[in-house]
Computed example of a mutant assay.
Amino acid sequence: MHGLKKKRRVQIVLVAFAALAISTALIGYAMRDGINFFRSPSQVVEEPPRANEVFRIGGLVEEGTLQRGAGETIRFSVTDGGATVPVTFTGVLPDLFGENQGMIGTGRYINGVFEASEILAKHDESYMPKEVVDALKEQGVYQEPNGS
């Protein structure tokens, strides 16, 4: 009787462990497309990602590079002070998007050009995404906004 209780307890622990492992694997599988890693332009240039990898890039829109072409396609370059990556985006840009402003884009890096599917811009004159601030500080070019 005593051995049977111990055997049953071991079986329950093993079944619980297997259920936990399976549920963790299913959650990871379900989230694989929803996780986007952030990269600065310097990181993208140093180690270009695979063409099918969706990731986020952030930095400052380089002055003099914003080109609004025919249709809705917009071209510009994003920089962190150490490297510059050309970006294309088809769609409507946020109202506060502009040159020398912080931005984060989600998309793919194909043939040396970041093809953005989504562009986010700062929401007021002092905001800059944390990832962009960290990348600019790492490059040594970050300046505190005036009035803060």
Rank of each mutant, 00 (worst) to 15 (best):
F37A: 09
R68T: 02
M103H: 03
Q101I: 07
G81V: 13
G28Y: 13
D134N: 11
Q143K: 07
L96C: 02
N146T: 11
R9I: 01
P86S: 07
E131G: 12
D80Q: 00
A83Q: 12
G91E: 12
E99S: 12
M103A: 15
G81M: 03
S40Y: 02
V85W: 00
R75P: 04
G82I: 01
A21E: 12
K5G: 11
Q101N: 13
K7C: 05
G28H: 01
V113F: 04
R75S: 14
I74H: 01
K6C: 01
Y142M: 06
G28R: 06
V113Q: 06
V141W: 06
G3M: 14
T106K: 11
G91P: 10
I22W: 15
L20W: 14
V61H: 15
E99Q: 10
R32Q: 15
T73A: 12
D134H: 06
F38C: 10
L120Q: 15
R9Y: 03
T106P: 04
E47G: 12
E72P: 08
Q101D: 06
G71D: 13
V54K: 05
E62G: 05
V113E: 04
R8Q: 06
V44G: 00
P145T: 09
N146K: 08
G91N: 02
Q139H: 07
K7V: 15
A121N: 08
A30T: 06
F97P: 02
Q139P: 05
F76P: 03
E46R: 09
I104K: 06
G71N: 10
G59D: 01
G59R: 02
N52M: 13
V10R: 15
A135E: 08
F17W: 07
E62F: 05
F97N: 08
F38W: 00
S77N: 07
G112W: 02
V45F: 04
A18W: 08
V133T: 06
F89K: 11
G3L: 14
V54S: 08
K6Q: 10
F97D: 10
V133S: 05
E99T: 08
V61M: 03
R75K: 08
D124F: 11
Q101L: 15
G28V: 08
N111W: 08
R68N: 04
Y109G: 06
K122G: 12
N52Y: 09
I27S: 01
